[in-house]
Design a protein around this nucleic acid. Structure first.
Lengths: 342, 342
DNA sequence: TTGAAAGCGCTACCAT
DNA sequence: ATGGTAGCGCTTTCAA
């Protein structure tokens, strides 16, 4: 359903030339008045500024980017915008980049690999100064394109794999292990994993494998998995938990792939009459803003999203300024609340 | 702390000319092979495509935008990215625009009017094909710039005011009135308003005035307001509610400016030993994903964010294709849950 | 301190 | 079906 967009336009927007003509100087002088004010006579500068103000002049950065050496765009590729999973990263990243006059161009792959390729291509076509992208697992062609672009590439959120250039994040397998070990430490023995796991959500798979490894190391039986492809929501969590316990009533702890799903799991358990944390423990991931407000309050893992956004902005600036590629580990925290506190 | 970004670069990225040279045709032919394939001999086309693939060619849209008539960028200006307030709008908007090869350039004002001006200027400097922006209340200079840009401007989320061009949203005063009338219908009489209200959050102010008008119409005493400038969070809600009831123990219903704040209010009431909904009613705004999962579950208002995103994309395309400006009203729904169900 | 001219990579228009 | 040429609006030498 791609509709052809009309091609007219020819908007009558003022250019440097309009300003130059109006003031009676060359285009060049106007350009310098903007980029290097001190090289222009003060009186002239005043007139130029006045003309710009009056005509509502806004520089054309397409032209500037084409002509100059940098485009001042930073491409940001996320896998999801739902339920604030990455919203806070984008928030801090965007604010920090603004300090350097870098503009965020946003793309959302929705956990779809084909979409990721298409979007990366699209973003690169704007000749960004850098690209920040969620995760370290990309289709080969995406990696090839990103490398060929010859600009800083910052991989965010996950550091558990091969990095293209620079990475800011944490190891998701260790998160899974920590979740398992916490549950085991609380005396839970029959663990299950529940949630929305999209085909392309490698981070979820890494957390799961961390859980499995830790459970095996503790001599526990295999973790029972019950996941779905659809997006995470309380409704999904409620359904999955109900189905899970029907088939596996022995389960005494549920690790959820996201807090939003865990909320639904808690609701299911309430309806089933299972006491949390006495009969069964629940742990989430993400530290949703409501995790401390449900009852029982939810034990979960809090990744420091603000820090990731901030460090990513720093990495972008550093790499643009020719710093060496590096990997910045970001802390996360297991927050124990009522849902596992028995 | 604006650091000067280094100005080198001179990346060696393939251009149309590289492809043309390699295949032995003119730049023009390569360009047409991309934009109008059927005008190029099939055999030549094949060679051109092969060369592009091999060199990892990515078109330079800065050049295309400068040369052509459109830039295919859509500027999106939001007031917040926190707690998914607008994340779902951006999500659907971005996906829908992708179908038309329009790219989202994102800016977040964080409810700051100066920032809004700066960001709008910055966005316009990319010569976007259209701008979508939250709200209808902007500083005069912003309105002037947006009008002068002579492109479609879609104002989202709020329709309660003077529209620049086209708007997609709802009337927040009516939401406030509906909240008040619901509370009154449930028998609550001493209403309070609590939450984070940023200086520049005109929507919150409109909802509040809707509440006040409805309360006055019902002959109730004035609504007690207790708000803060800082961002909304459960912690803020807990604090504000505690302080409020200390000073005004007669309050029997609290309208919150956001669900996240309401979660904290519920927690405060639990600690204070006030029964919800028997002693005191609580209503939120926004239908946060956890609103149905807290206990008691939260009565709130659900704006249709996905629809706003979708209709905004439609409006952008329609306006680019010279449709007349219009205002698209979007429904919202008052969802009654336990927190007011007495 | 200012200006002229070339060129960034592409599209549009006119020839051939 | 293909190519030549002239810009788009800016930055960047190099002269004046």
């Amino acid at each position: 359903m791609t509709i052809e967009l009309s091609d007219k336009v020819a908007r009558n927007v003022p250019t440097l030339a309009s300003i130059a003509e109006r003031v009676g100087v060359s285009v060049n002088t106007v350009s310098r008045a903007l980029r290097a004010p001190h090289t222009v006579r003060i009186e002239l500068r005043r007139q130029i500024n006045a003309a710009m103000e009056e005509l509502n002049y806004v520089p054309n950065r397409l032209a500037g980017g084409l002509s100059g050496t940098r485009s001042d765009i930073v491409g940001v590729v996320v896998t999801s915008l739902y339920y604030s999973e990455f919203a806070n990263i984008i928030d801090t990243l965007q604010s920090a980049l603004l300090e350097h006059d870098l503009q965020v161009m946003l793309a959302n792959t929705r956990y779809n690999a084909d979409q990721e390729l298409r979007l990366v291509r699209s973003i690169l076509s704007w000749r960004p100064a850098a690209v920040a992208i969620i995760g370290v697992d990309h289709p080969p062609k995406v990696v090839e394109l990103l490398k060929a672009a010859d600009i800083p590439i910052i991989e965010m959120w996950d550091t558990g794999g091969e990095v293209i250039d620079t990475a800011v994040g944490f190891d998701h397998a260790r998160v899974g292990a920590a979740q398992a070990n916490h549950l085991i430490g609380q005396g839970y023995r029959r663990l299950a994993f529940v949630g929305s796991v999209r085909e392309n959500d490698k981070r979820a798979q890494k957390r799961l494998s961390g859980l499995e490894t830790a459970a095996a190391a503790a001599g526990l039986p295999d973790i029972v998995k019950h996941t779905a492809q659809q997006g995470g929501s309380p409704e999904l969590g409620e359904r999955l938990a109900t189905e899970l316990l029907q088939r596996h009533p022995e389960i005494d702890a549920i690790a959820c792939n996201s807090d939003v799903v865990a909320f639904g799991v808690l609701r299911a358990l309430r309806k089933l009459g299972r006491r949390v944390p006495e009969d069964i423990g629940v742990i989430g991931f993400g530290d949703n803003e409501a995790a401390s407000c449900v009852s029982p309050s939810l034990t979960t893992v809090r990744p420091d999203r603000e820090l990731i956004g901030k460090l990513t902005a720093e990495a972008i600036v550093a790499r643009i300024n020719d710093a060496k590629p590096y990997t910045a580990p970001v802390e996360w925290e297991l927050i124990v609340r009522e849902s596992t506190a028995r």
